[in-house]
Design a protein around this nucleic acid. Structure first.
Lengths: 197, 197
DNA sequence: GCTAGATATGAAACTGAGTGTCACGCTAGC
DNA sequence: GCTAGCGTGACACTCAGTTTCATATCTAGC
């Protein structure tokens, strides 16, 4: 987006190029391993200059992790959309369906991406870092939902983070099962494990 | 340690140098900011060569995060040491006292370190990455404690991770309060927030 | 005590990520 | 058509981290 909120022709072109670059990068990473592929490799494979590639993705990692961009906002919005009388856990669990949906739409793609991320320390670290920022965002959404104009309570922060962790564990197990297990069931089990015992 | 488990004179010297380097590095980081300080700065400030510095800490980040080294093993051991009839939550909560202890022994140092880490994206990311590895270790300890020779269940993974997250939230709040709030109380509250509602 | 082997250090070259600058070319609006 | 702005490429630069080699120091065995 360029300054104004208006979406111009250029923005569409940019998005298309971005998607194309991400696609090329992803395939190279899968084939040769993330660390083996240099920025020069990526640039020449995509037919652009190194500079251009770095303008689209500030980082090699971002070429992969850009796929997750904005998920936090989507989940937070979903959370705010839940009925006010719903308890935090139920609201969080439902809000996470927003994320799950993408895994059900394109299981193979999701599986490949997840594998690449978990197998690559650099990607894994960056992903954790970004996801770490979701916690406060979700906690704030919980606070908003509760109507209080105050910052999130310790309890809300804990629950938001724990819910995210449930998501991660569920995805881990799902990935380990080659996508055969049902992600919804796994997520429900994960949430249940918090209350249980 | 050199090959054998035996602790030699050299190992002691190494540890002393390491501690000294970490100290010098920490002060520079606090004064000028982590990103502003280069490896050359660190090396010359500590009176060693760049090579040597990098031999002690494979990474600039490790000069700070080395302080947390081995905590995961300590917590896991503490966990295994808990009575077998204790439920997971109680065992986890008590095992975390191992970590808390360091914050009570040297609150000022802990506060300074924590601040530096949370304020520096690179450090924060690396720290998250390392701490991410604790989850499986704790989950395994829970599994061992349960006597099953199997890998940890989904429930155990969830609980281990959630407990770690409680620790983080508690430390965050403690840091935000300049160390005035009681960390034990905060941690108890965080655990309570998981069961509640 | 002296030497042989291991070990700590320093120097330097190298790769690769990310930043900043500048000039060129295309496109849109006047 | 002209021009102002944007996307792109080329290039130089800084810095982290790796690797290699030479040198000094320390330890152990004789």
């Amino acid at each position: 987006m360029t300054g104004t909120g208006r979406t111009t022709t250029r923005d569409i072109a940019r998005a298309a190029v971005r998607a194309e670059l991400a696609q090329v990068a992803f395939e190279l990473f899968r084939r040769d391993g993330f660390d083996k592929v240099t920025l020069d490799d990526l640039a020449s494979a995509a037919g652009v200059s190194r500079s251009t590639f770095l303008r689209y993705f500030g980082t090699k990692e971002d070429a992969v992790l850009g796929a997750f961009e904005g998920q936090d906002q989507r989940v937070a919005d979903a959370l705010r959309g839940r009925p006010a009388d719903e308890d935090d856990w139920t609201a969080l669990r439902h809000a996470l369906d927003t994320v799950i949906a993408r895994y059900r739409e394109d299981p193979d793609g999701a599986l490949a991406t997840t594998r690449l991320v978990r197998e690559t320390p650099a990607l894994c670290a960056r992903h954790l870092e970004k996801q770490h920022g979701w916690g406060p965002a979700l906690a704030q959404a919980l606070a908003d939902r509760a109507g209080s104009a105050e910052p999130p309570t310790l309890g809300q922060s804990v629950r938001a983070g724990a819910a995210l962790h449930c998501l991660n564990v569920a995805i881990d197990h799902w990935t380990a099962s080659d996508g055969r297990l049902d992600l919804v069931t796994l997520l429900d089990e994960a949430f249940a494990a918090l209350s249980g015992r």
